[in-house]
Design a protein around this nucleic acid. Structure first.
Length: 268
DNA sequence: ATGTCGCCTACGAGGCGA
């Protein structure tokens, strides 16, 4: 047995929209080490594979698995252990303007199936991007239902920037969001669909309120005018193993932060 | 004060996306 599969006692997993890995590599690797994460799912890496600063991750003992096409979107994992069964995108993932964007990356880590997801923003309620967002979520939910049916016992989690605030308390003032994306009924229904097929939010179960994103504009962070739009949605087999959760608000502070912060769970 | 940031092209500043 020269190459037995690594089995971890516990696994600390996080999702983080890093808003450019080239700009943020120092902060991300610092946090990886400080938090001692086993797996980090990243979104908005905003680069092609050859532009990703892989060396900085390898220097601290992490492997990188990524999917990036250009300066937009882009998803990745950094992990101490090997990524297995890597999948780019999901079956029937919609295109936007004839392009399949880099918004979904799946991989298995020590038997745990994870997806790093960057859900389309939607832009405006009357924009084609909004229709794209809803279709994209619908296709993701259909795939997820099949994955759960195929192997209900495999721990599975969808992790990422969902660009939806499911509850009124997930934005600083719901009245300011009348007619906006992220809080519309169809978007919230699309989010609830994941719960209806059996996923749970182990972070919400432990941390009912609190934001994961604050816009750079208009002093949103100092005023604590944020949104909760980044989630880890787990199957029962995943959620039952979660022992703790954290939203790392401090990562919005200091020099050169992302506009999002890490959302973390530990499973045993 | 549209109180920002990051990418691109192409070398200065504007456009796009969030």
């Amino acid at each position: 047995m020269p190459f037995g599969k690594i089995t971890l006692d516990t696994m600390k997993i996080a999702t983080w929209n890093v808003n450019s890995i080239r700009t943020r590599v120092g902060r991300v690797t610092d946090y990886l080490q400080r938090a001692d994460l086993d797996v980090l799912a990243m979104q908005e890496i905003k680069c092609k594979p050859e532009q990703f600063p892989v060396e900085a991750f390898e220097a601290i003992g992490y492997k990188v698995t990524m999917h990036g096409l250009n300066q937009w979107n882009g998803v990745a994992f950094a992990s101490k252990i090997e990524a297995e069964d890597v999948e780019i995108g999901f079956t029937g993932m919609p295109e936007f303007k004839d392009v399949l964007e880099a918004r979904a990356l799946g991989a298995t880590f020590d038997g745990v199936r994870l997806w790093s997801l960057y859900v389309p923003n939607g832009r405006m309620l009357d924009d084609p991007h909004y229709t794209y967002k809803l279709e994209w979520l619908d296709r993701l939910a259909a795939n997820t239902a099949e994955w759960l049916e195929y192997d209900p016992d495999q721990p599975l989690a969808l992790m990422g920037d969902f660009n939806i605030a499911p509850l009124d308390t997930d934005v600083w003032n719901i009245d300011d969001f009348a007619g906006s994306t992220h809080v519309s009924v169809p978007e919230r229904q699309a989010f609830e669909a994941f719960e209806q097929i059996g996923l749970r939010d182990p972070v919400r179960e432990r941390i009912p309120t609190g934001y994961t994103y604050w816009d750079y504009q208009q002093l949103r962070f100092p005023r604590n005018e944020g949104m909760r739009i980044d989630f880890i949605l787990g199957s029962d087999a995943f959620a039952e193993r979660v022992t703790s959760a954290e939203i790392v608000r401090d990562e919005r502070k200091g020099e050169g932060p992302s506009d999002h912060v890490p959302v973390v769970v530990t499973i045993d």
